[in-house]
């Protein structure tokens, strides 16, 4: 269900904190059944990716805020993974209702989908728990968006694709968190998606070729 103003206002950070604190670190039974319904079961690659990205995230976090806060980094990531599994399940449930299909093999074996969804979940946790705990360390590195994109080596345009579905799928987001994701969205649309290595340019080219119209839009280099 789309986010209604009342629901967003009613939700408090405590709600999401309580939900994440009691959530499991592993995929739920429901989520496992979605994995089992896939032509190619994605579970192993999902678990492997969560582990690999976790190592990188904790390393970069400790580098950014100091080894003394390394434990905070692993806590943030842990909660991010819980949110990632929770939102994935909710997304699949609504897609199942919308499309009345049960086999999401292609989507669930898509590395970019998972990396984007995980990045969004970790970004929400980072924004939720804020920076006050490690604010005192003059780390110089700003961990707010788009820091997570560099850590996960993720293109902004791919991150952008999950934002709206994430907001729809996670009913416990607060107004501030939705506003935060919306600011990320705008920053991507206004600048980050137009950087020269963005996948956007290939997509524009492909759609132009499909339309068969003259390709006047693309400049050789993005300005």
């Amino acid at each position: 269900p789309p986010q209604t103003p009342v629901r967003a206002v009613m939700n408090t950070i405590q709600q999401l904190v309580m939900i994440l604190n009691s959530a499991s670190d592993q995929p739920s039974e429901n989520l496992n059944s979605y994995f089992n319904n896939c032509t190619v079961n994605p579970k192993e690659s999902i678990l492997k990716r969560v582990e690999n990205i976790g190592r990188i995230f904790k390393e970069k976090f400790a580098e950014a805020v100091g080894q003394g806060c390394a434990e905070i980094g692993s806590q943030r990531y842990k909660l991010g993974v819980r949110l990632y599994y929770r939102v994935m399940e909710s997304m699949l449930k609504s897609e199942e209702e919308r499309l009345s299909i049960h086999n999401f093999s292609k989507l669930l074996n898509d590395k970019i989908f998972h990396t984007s969804l995980l990045a969004c979940a970790v970004e929400v946790v980072m924004a939720t728990y804020g920076r006050n705990t490690y604010q005192s360390h003059d780390s110089g590195t700003d961990l707010s968006f788009p820091w997570i994109l560099n850590v996960l080596d993720l293109k902004a345009f791919d991150f952008y694709k999950v934002i709206e579905s994430f907001i729809k799928a996670e009913a416990s987001l607060t107004r501030e968190m939705i506003k935060h994701l919306e600011r990320c969205e705008h920053r991507i649309m206004e600048s980050l998606a137009w950087q020269s290595d963005s996948p956007l340019f290939d997509l524009i080219k492909q759609s132009k070729e499909r339309e068969g119209s003259v390709d006047h839009l693309l400049e050789p280099t993005s300005t």
Binding site: Q3, K106, K161, S165, E182
Partner: peptide, 21 residues
């Protein structure tokens, strides 16, 4: 400020966005 603007149309969802339809 006003609420989040849901831009996805009918028949557009995460599956379409990741070319899995």
């Amino acid at each position: 400020g006003q609420d989040y603007h849901f831009g996805l149309e009918e028949g557009e969802g995460i599956r379409e966005l990741f070319d899995c339809d």
